[in-house]
Design a protein around this nucleic acid. Structure first.
Length: 615
DNA sequence: TTTAGGG
DNA sequence: CCCTAAA
C-alpha cells in the first residue's frame, strides 16, 4: 500500500494544473485581515476592575479606568471598537453608539495575581529542559519584548500569600510575562514513513479547514470521511472537491477518522498586553461559564513555556527562603502567578443614548449578576473543579512537574448556580475529538439554558488558539463567534437581573480585540490538522498556486492567507529536512513530513520541466 | 492581487 | 509572520 501510494505519486501524472490566471475563477478577496466591526465594546479587563470592586464592595468606575488608561495594553475596562478599530479606549467617553449595534464585552481580567504556595517550591525541573519552545527564534524575542512591555504597565498585582491568615497584599509589581508551551513534545521517533494517511490513527480524509472567525482562535476542521459521531449529518457543503491527487490515494477509504491529536494547545501569552483578551481555558470540561483563568505551568526563564496560561510558575524564586523551609524535602513549592481571572464573557447591547454612567452600571450589574456579591474562587484542574479544600496540592495533582496540567482559577457565583448549568454543553462540544473543544458560553446563557449553538455542519472545532493570552484564553469566545450563531445567541439571551438600560447580555463574541493598527498578527501555529490539509492540497495543486491551495483547503480559515500557507509550506519543507530533535512546536507526524518532501520534490521537478519546456 | 523570497 | 519586488 505504502509503496503503491508512492508510486502513484510519481507516476500518476498529475497534470500540472497551471491554470492561466486569466482563466481562473475570479480571485478571492485575498488576504482578509480584519473585518471592521462596528461599535464593539470590549471590556477586556473588566474583571480587573470588577474584581477590585467586588473585593471592596465598591462600585468604582470601570470606565474611568478604561478611559484614563493611556496604554491600551494596560487598561482595564471597556474598550470600544469603532469601525476601523482605530478608536481605542480613550474615545469611550465621546463615543457614540450606533443604534442597533451590539457591543461586545469580553470578560475582563483581574490584575495579575501571584500566588505563592509556600509549601511547594518550583525547582528547575530538568525535565523541562529539552522541550521545545513553541515559538521560533523570533518569538523568543517577542516574548522578551513583551515582558518588557508588561513591566511597563501599571498592572496591579495582588499578591496572595498562602498564609494561614489568608491575607492579601496588594502591590504594584510588574508581572512576568511568560509563555509556555505545554505540548512541546518531541515527535515520536517511530516515523512510520509513508504510512497512508488513511491508516493513521486519526485518519484523514480530504478535509477542509473551516474557520469562521477571522482572527479568532477556532478552526473548524471538516473531515470528510469522518466516522466520528461529531455530528449526525455532515453537510455536503463541507465536502471539498476530491479530485484525484497524485499523492493522495483514496480519500474515501480512510479508516478511522478520529480527529487528529490535540492540535490545539495553549499558546504563550506573548501578546497579552496587546490584545486584552482574557484567556479562557480550552478544555472540554473547563467551565465555560465561569470566567476562568487558564493556567499552566510556565517557566519564566527557561525556554519552556507552559501553554497559554494565565498563571505561571515562577521559577525565579526558588527562593532561598523556600529552600530553607523545606531543606531536604522533596516537596517543591508551587509558585503560581495568576495573570488574570476571568469572568464570564458578556455582550452588551446598549443604546447610544445611554449614558456612560449607565454603561458602567450595566457592566457592573452584568458581572455582579454572575458573580454575585461575593467573590468566590474556584479551582480547576484539568478542567475539573476541585472541590475538596482539604486536599493538598500534591494530593490534588498540582505540582510543578506537571507541565501539562492546567490549573485554573475562576471567579464563581456563590451558590454554584452556574456550575450546574454549564453541563448543558452543546453537543458538538463533546465530540470525541481529543481536541479540547471548548466553547464559550456565557454563564448567563447557560443558566438560562438557552444557549444553543448551532452545530453547523459536522465540523470539529479545533481550538486553534494562537498564542498569546489573547488566544490562549479565549477560545471560548470564538465558538460562538460563528456568525450564524451570533444572531441566535443574541436573540436568546437577555440579562436576567439587569434592569437598567435594557441591556442585553449575550455571549461574548470574540472579536479580535480592537487592535489593528499595524500590529503584528498573533502567531497561530498550524495544527496537525491544518498541516494535513495543507499537505493534501499542495500534493494536488502544487507549490505555486497558493491562492488555490487556500481556496481549496483553507477557504474558511480567514486567518490563513495564501501567503501564510506558502510560508507554512516553506517551513514544513524545512522541518522535514531537519532532524526531529531540532524541530519545535507541536510535532508533525513524520508521515506528513514525508509527504511534504515527496510533494515538494515532485512539484519542484515539475517546475523544472516546465521551465525547460518554455526555454 | 498573487507569487516568490528574503527578513 | 512580515515586507515587497515582480509579475
Amino acid at each position: 500500500m505504502v509503496m503503491q501510494k508512492r508510486l502513484d505519486y510519481g507516476f500518476n501524472g498529475y497534470q500540472v494544473p497551471s491554470v492561466p490566471r486569466a482563466s481562473r475563477s475570479p480571485r478571492g478577496r485575498g488576504t482578509v485581515r480584519k473585518k471592521p466591526e462596528s461599535n464593539q465594546i470590549q471590556a477586556f479587563d473588566i474583571l480587573a476592575s470588577v474584581a477590585g470592586n467586588l473585593l471592596q464592595k465598591n462600585q468604582s468606575s470601570i470606565l474611568d479606568n478604561a478611559s484614563s488608561a493611556k496604554d491600551p495594553r494596560t487598561f482595564s475596562g471597556i474598550n470600544i471598537k469603532e469601525n476601523k478599530q482605530e478608536n481605542q479606549l480613550g474615545s469611550l467617553k465621546e463615543e457614540q453608539f450606533e443604534p442597533g449595534t451590539c457591543s461586545e464585552v469580553v470578560s475582563g481580567s483581574v490584575p495579575s495575581l501571584q500566588e505563592k504556595h509556600e509549601n511547594q517550591r518550583v525547582t528547575s525541573d530538568s525535565s523541562l529542559h529539552g522541550n521545545h519552545l513553541e515559538g521560533q527564534g523570533q518569538n523568543e524575542l517577542e516574548r522578551d519584548d513583551e515582558r518588557v512591555k508588561l513591566q511597563n504597565t501599571n498592572e496591579k498585582i495582588i499578591r496572595i500569600k498562602n498564609r494561614s491568615d489568608g491575607s492579601i497584599e496588594q502591590g504594584q509589581k510588574a508581572s512576568k510575562d511568560c509563555s509556555a508551551e505545554n505540548h512541546a513534545e518531541k515527535p515520536s521517533p517511530e516515523g512510520h514513513c509513508r504510512r497512508n494517511l488513511d491508516s493513521l490513527p486519526n485518519g484523514f480524509g480530504s478535509r477542509k479547514l473551516v474557520n469562521r472567525d477571522d482572527d479568532e482562535n477556532f478552526v473548524q476542521c471538516t473531515q470528510l470521511n469522518s466516522k466520528n459521531k461529531i455530528s449526525s449529518d455532515p453537510p455536503p457543503d463541507t465536502l471539498k472537491v476530491k479530485d484525484a491527487s497524485p499523492f493522495v490515494k483514496d480519500e474515501n477509504n480512510s479508516g478511522d477518522n478520529s480527529v487528529l491529536e490535540n492540535s490545539e494547545r495553549m499558546y504563550p501569552f506573548k501578546k497579552r498586553k496587546f490584545y486584552y483578551q482574557t484567556s479562557s481555558s480550552t478544555s472540554d470540561s473547563w467551565s465555560h461559564c465561569q470566567g476562568t483563568v487558564d493556567s499552566s505551568y510556565t517557566r519564566v526563564n527557561g525556554t519552556n513555556h507552559g501553554a497559554g496560561a494565565t498563571m505561571h510558575v515562577i521559577e525565579e524564586s526558588s527562593s532561598i527562603a523556600d529552600e530553607q523551609v523545606h531543606p531536604g524535602s522533596k516537596g517543591c513549592n508551587v509558585k503560581l502567578s495568576i495573570k488574570s481571572f476571568k469572568v464570564p464573557e458578556l455582550f452588551i447591547d446598549i443604546p447610544e443614548t445611554a449614558t456612560i454612567g449607565s454603561l458602567k452600571r450595566t457592566v457592573m450589574e452584568a458581572v455582579t449578576a454572575i458573580l454575585g456579591d461575593e467573590l468566590h474562587v474556584g479551582i480547576l484542574l484539568q478542567g475539573k473543579k476541585v472541590r475538596d479544600d482539604s486536599k493538598t496540592l500534591i494530593q490534588t495533582g498540582i505540582s510543578q512537574d506537571d507541565k501539562h496540567h492546567r490549573l485554573g482559577f475562576m471567579l464563581e457565583p456563590r451558590h454554584n448556580r452556574i456550575s450546574s448549568s454549564y453541563n448543558e454543553e452543546p453537543c458538538f462540544l463533546t465530540t470525541n475529538s481529543r481536541q479540547k473543544l471548548s466553547r464559550q458560553s456565557t454563564s448567563l446563557m447557560l443558566q438560562q439554558g438557552t444557549y444553543n449553538v448551532s452545530r453547523e455542519r459536522s465540523t470539529v472545532k479545533i481550538e486553534n488558539c494562537a498564542e498569546g493570552d489573547h488566544n490562549a484564553v479565549s477560545s471560548l469566545g470564538d465558538t460562538s463567534a460563528n456568525n450564524n450563531n451570533m444572531s441566535k445567541c443574541r436573540a436568546l439571551v437577555t440579562v436576567p437581573a439587569i434592569n437598567m438600560d435594557a441591556l442585553a447580555v449575550v455571549p461574548y463574541r470574540r472579536k479580535s480585540g480592537n487592535s489593528d493598527f499595524g500590529q503584528r498578527r498573533i502567531r497561530r501555529p498550524f495544527s496537525v490538522l491544518e498541516v494535513e490539509a495543507l499537505v493534501q492540497a499542495v500534493e494536488k495543486l502544487g507549490t505555486g498556486r497558493w491562492r488555490d491551495v487556500k481556496q481549496r483547503a483553507f477557504d474558511n480559515a480567514k486567518h490563513r492567507t495564501y501567503v501564510d500557507l506558502k510560508d507554512k509550506w516553506k517551513t514544513l519543507v524545512h522541518t522535514a529536512r531537519i532532524s526531529p530533535q531540532q524541530r519545535r512546536g507541536e510535532p508533525v507526524p513524520q508521515e506528513l513530513l514525508d509527504r511534504v518532501l515527496a510533494a515538494h520534490a515532485y512539484w519542484s521537478q515539475q517546475q523544472c520541466k516546465h521551465q525547460l519546456k518554455s526555454m
